[in-house]
Design a protein around this nucleic acid. Structure first.
Length: 463
RNA sequence: CGGGGCGUAGCGCAGCCUGGUAGCGCGGCGGUUUUGGGAACCGUAGGUCGUAGGUUCGAAUCCUAUCGCCCCGACCA
């Protein structure tokens, strides 16, 4: 993309309403524009990040054998009356009446809809296990929306639902989700720690929240520092293997890690003193096993191998996609702006032409731009007629992890400058070498590297 | 919903107390000189002062109502 033809309304000054760093930078970098309290338009740059996060979520869900679909934002109140939540959910649910006087609602979540779909079409244990998910806008009428997209009223969320014939296989689904979530967050350059949580209005017996450590987090968290040393890395995971998944879950749940809701000072005291950590965290996901809570209320039953009709065991799982945009910024920024992890960056690298209009500089930039595009990478070429300082400031603010700086001075010696946004380190090298280096950096983040679904599959519905 | 605050040009703000017909910085547009970390100068456009009523010869300013937004709290992906 050429910046001169893009829409990137950056702000030099911080809008007064923004209190926390992610909100400030999202506004200043031209990522969002507030439409109403807790409701935002996603401008082109923000939209690219949102879509990158969404893409990673999709890839990791499908890798784990989960099936994408899409349910509507508006729902009929009838199903919610059936589950009993029409009254339980309270003021946070946005209720709407259509022209015929029918009670509708803007969905805060989708357990009712998915259960209705399930009971209409699935009747036998032979159709299980089944995990369906979608990524869709939700609305929760927060009393006080704040912190930009971190606590909006309208938000983009992946929610998935697993259906299993009995508790044991439902627990495996739970474990499988924890593993896939760990991978998902790691690919975004985040460390999200699973912490034992309260179930809240969703209900359930077993649940973990995933928290990103950040000073501005809304939850107080207590953990054993051993957990932050854990990495999924490149390890091969067989999502069909109950023991493998359970082992990884044990690895991540053995060290103490809880939010203030479930914190137990006595248990925490058993963690060696030097490993006790107390911090703040941003919740970016949660997984639940809730047994037969909805299936019993709504009559979602299957016939098991003994010919008995039994309520299906369910779980649900959510990832706050729009919130993650803010959470990543909270976890990765400095005083100049955002520092995007390679996995989610809106553009793979920036090209800064220090002397727009200079024949050699223009030509070198065009060549770099073409080479990067040819490799399937998307550079952002700052070809505006701006001074160097302004271009650098913009690049630093919008946080592209890599920058190639091109100027007449370097070109005289046949070199350009490659700069890491994170470390600030600059190296001079030929343009060809810079392209090669960028390509290497992104080799692991390419879509192709993640598009392979699990090789062995137990899910009958998987393509 | 309780407490606090704010709505004046695209953004950040002053003016309000003590009414007299709107200003500053940044940004925009045109031009000249510049050009390796947010340049300088000249020119120029842009506002029914959130909205509605009231008081007054006269309201951004005083009064009333209303809408919106932000912050703290309870609540929450």
């Amino acid at each position: 993309m050429r910046l001169s033809r893009y829409f990137l309304p950056v702000l030099k000054e911080t809008p007064s309403e923004a209190q926390i760093v992610s909100h400030r930078y999202m506004l200043r970098a031209g990522m969002i524009k507030q439409a109403a309290a807790g409701i935002y338009s996603w401008l082109p740059l923000g939209f690219r990040v949102l879509k990158n996060i969404e893409r990673i979520v999709h890839e990791e869900q499908q890798r784990a054998g989960h099936i994408p679909m899409l349910m509507p934002t508006l729902q009929s109140a009838d199903l919610w009356r059936e589950s009993g939540r029409y009254d339980d959910y309270g003021e946070e649910m946005l209720r709407i009446t259509d022209r015929h006087g029918r009670d509708m609602l803007y969905g805060p979540t989708n357990e009712e809809l998915i259960t209705d779909i399930f009971r209409s079409h699935v009747g036998s244990y032979k159709d299980l296990p089944l995990t369906l998910y979608h990524i869709q806008w939700k609305f929760r009428d927060e009393i006080r929306p704040r912190f930009g997209v971190m606590r909006g009223r309208e938000f983009y969320m992946k929610d998935g639902y697993n259906f299993d014939v009995d508790q044991a296989s439902a627990i495996h689904a739970y474990n499988r989700h924890m593993v896939s979530y760990l991978r998902t967050y790691e690919r975004m350059g985040l460390q999200a720690i699973p912490m034992r949580a309260d179930s809240g209005p969703i209900g359930g017996e077993d649940t973990h929240e995933f928290l990103v450590l950040a000073d501005t987090g809304e939850s107080e968290v207590f953990y054993d520092s051993a957990i932050t040393d854990l990495k999924m890395g490149d390890r091969a995971v067989d999502y069909d293997n109950w023991d493998d998944c359970a082992a990884i879950v044990r690895e991540w749940t053995a060290p103490y890690a809880r939010t203030d809701e479930t914190h137990d000072a006595a248990v925490f005291a058993e963690v060696p003193q030097e490993r006790q950590r107390r911090s703040r965290g941003i919740e970016v996901g949660q997984i639940f096993y809730f047994g037969t809570k909805y299936s019993e209320a709504m009559g979602a039953r299957v016939v098991n191998d003994k010919g008995e009709r039994v309520p299906v065991h369910m779980g649900s799982h959510g990832i706050g996609v729009s919130r993650l945009v803010g959470a990543i910024i909270e976890a990765s920024h400095d005083d100049k702006g955002i520092i995007w992890p390679e996995g989610v960056t809106p553009f793979h690298c920036g090209i800064v032409n220090l002397r727009q209009g200079d024949e050699a500089a223009d030509a070198a930039c065009e060549a770099l731009y073409a080479s990067l595009k040819a490799l399937g990478l998307e550079p952002l070429y700052d070809d505006r007629d701006e001074r160097a300082g302004g271009k650098f400031a913009t690049m630093d603010l919008i946080g592209l992890p890599w920058r190639i700086t091109v100027g007449p001075r370097g070109l005289k010696n046949g070199v350009v400058e490659l700069t890491s946004r994170r470390s600030g380190v600059s190296e001079e090298m030929t343009p060809e070498m810079a392209v090669e280096r960028i390509a290497e950096v992104y080799a692991h983040h390419h879509r192709a590297a993640h598009a392979q679904p699990m090789p062995q599959r137990a899910f009958h519905t998987w393509i």
